[in-house]
Design a binder for these strands. Structure first.
Lengths: 192, 192
DNA sequence: TCCCCTTTCCTAGGAGTCCTAGGAAGAAAG
DNA sequence: CTTTCTTCCTAGGACTCCTAGGAAAGGGGA
């Protein structure tokens, strides 16, 4: 029978893993499932990736880069509340459109493994760029950044896991929360 | 040889699973690992639990109940900012002390499976009780509640996964974030 | 053109996981 | 003591990750 190479590359595997993650969930990203998708035995993939962990880290980096791009585009040319809302909406829209990829970005990864990757630095840069418009100084910058990251991530994480059971539309609470966060950033220094 | 019953009960399994989760991580809570811990074959556990999913749901309910108790005790007799801080600190302290149990509480569970359990209702009650002091009406109550849950959960989730790399002490950012959230709650109605 | 060498994919197999089926022995009830 | 219920067992299937070692495709050089 016609034995043909499947033409697998590491990048191709990661892209396929990303699709698989969004379709079936991040925890369904498995070596066997990926091999099935390429019509190949699972042992064959180990020429391209070191192991499952390696694959998932690559997936996280891919997703983070995509997310950075989406956020970077959204905030370009905006400042103040416009930038905050653009940032937040780009963040949420990406996560809702790509739940599996988003889950990949928040898996526990050895900090040293990504601490000084371009992707990580750009994420920090984007956040600080957006906050700069509010005139915050350290350590307020770090504190406010942490609160924002927490609120964004927590909101999406709960939303994706079906935790917002109330009938109130999730998007409206989101918009209202962004108003509140904007207010917080404007008054970060003043009074309690 | 002396064949002795291991004296396993469903509750005992769940408690052991909780310890295992806090020691080794929620994803290490496995039927085999639990069986090993009891010196028993894994097939033997299926007399007490339906399957792994069942075990994890029970673990989530245990952890949620414990957390509710901790929060309930903390907010008792307090109101306003005192209640907010007591609630938040109890939440965070529990999660940091019991990371595996906490992870169990935020796994994806079929909403119908817990929607009207006493545990779930009490959690809602505690949150709304704490917010009532700020004089919020629906839908602000829901919106503010969602923002708070998001911020708390997001903060702890990122902290537990080592996501706060900056040298600024995490506890100080937390305290500062609570100040900000209190401010947000006090001014929820007024202006943007 | 022919041969070799690198890469890609294979088979084989070990170890670990979840879970079911059916059996034996302890514990409790009659 | 006998019967019944419960607990734990062995056996085994299906799926997972991963390693070792082999075969064949495709490209480079003589």
């Amino acid at each position: 029978m016609p034995v043909v190479r499947a033409g697998i590359t590491a990048d191709g595997l990661v892209r396929a893993a990303a699709e698989l993650a969004d379709e079936s969930g991040f925890d369904k990203v498995t070596v066997s499932a990926l091999a099935r998708r390429f019509g190949v035995k699972d042992a064959s993939l180990y020429s391209h990736i070191r192991n499952l962990r390696d694959l998932r880290v690559r997936l996280a980096l891919l997703a983070s880069a995509e997310m950075n791009d989406a956020i970077g585009t959204a905030v370009a040319g905006r400042s103040g509340k416009e930038a905050l809302v653009a940032f937040a909406d780009a963040y949420r829209d990406y996560a809702l459109a790509h739940p599996g990829r988003y889950a990949a970005t928040q898996q526990r990864i050895d900090p040293e493994e990504v601490a000084d990757t371009a992707v990580f630095l750009r994420a920090v840069e984007l956040t600080h760029g957006m906050l700069r418009g509010y005139g915050l100084q350290e350590p307020d910058l770090t504190d406010a950044g942490r609160l924002l990251r927490s609120a964004f991530h927590g909101y999406i994480h709960i939303e994706l896991s079906g935790g917002f059971a109330h009938s109130r539309p999730v998007a409206e609470s989101w918009a209202r929360s962004l108003d509140a966060l904007h207010h917080v950033l404007e008054n970060w220094g003043n009074g309690s």
